[in-house]
Design a protein around this nucleic acid. Structure first.
Lengths: 135, 135
DNA sequence: CTAGGACCTCGACATTTGTAGAGGTCAAGG
DNA sequence: CCTTGACCTCTACAAATGTCGAGGTCCTAG
């Protein structure tokens, strides 16, 4: 237990690539294997194939799934998440995640602000929302 | 018994019957008539029926649709929006909208915060998201 | 009275987001 | 060798979110 987590920062990390199987990823992310397949097929996860044609994922796979789930609950479609994650390199480091995080969060806040603005007009417009968009 | 029983087409000002037709609502909200029907059938809009079995909406209908669209983009399902709007009285006044707005916005911000928290761990955790095992 | 427009219902279809099963492959172990 | 488990592909189905068309009703105009 608690085997060392290989620090793969610079130097030579030419050891075996951290290739997780679909089952491991599913387990880690707490979703069914079918869901992992679905995400991989839709650009949320990048997968390579091993000698036996099985999908191999890098360590970021389960993170991507977790983030994707939260991103969906904030209004993004799988397509949009796939496009965004498509800009991530394999085995992204914290710096790579930062750009993604910024986009994700500020887009979400933008939409919340839109909603709030609309709602504010409803609350304060003495009558109803005649002024929301027209006039 | 006076002449106010006549349904007016041109939205006469003053105390006109607050009964908008589905076509008017669709026009106001900028969505197809079919969408209005869909929302009405799913609790986003409250509709009564007139003598000819046609849906009649109050003035809040197009507002509800606009808000619903924004709410969806912030992660709510139609079902959830319907449940929330179900607490609104017919012809809600700004005060009624305020409670809805509060729920809507704070729920949305909660989800954005969840996302951000997850993302923060990815950015700052020197390693990857092994610690994200919440949510 | 007839024509038209606006609505109605109901069922089909389309897309998104998954889930489930059938049937095939591959590698390891008894 | 044969079985088993994990995977693979492909197809089907399911729920959510709409959209469209067919066929029918009703009201108002001409």
């Amino acid at each position: 237990m608690s085997s060392d987590t290989t620090p793969r920062r610079d130097g030579s990390n030419s050891a075996a690539p951290p290739a997780r199987s679909i089952g491991e990823v599913a387990e880690e992310a707490g979703v069914p294997v079918t869901a992992v397949r679905f995400y991989a097929d839709h650009g949320v996860l990048a997968a390579t194939r091993d000698g036996g044609n099985r999908r191999r994922f890098d360590d970021s796979a389960s993170c991507r799934i977790r983030v994707a789930k939260l991103a969906q609950r904030v209004g993004l479609t799988v397509r949009e998440i796939g496009d965004l994650f498509g800009t991530l390199p394999p085995d992204p480091d914290p710096e790579d995640w930062r750009a993604v995080a910024e986009t994700l969060v500020s887009d979400a806040e933008q939409r919340v602000a839109d909603l709030r603005r609309c709602l504010d007009q409803l609350e304060s417009g003495g009558k109803l929302c005649e002024a929301v968009d027209r006039l």
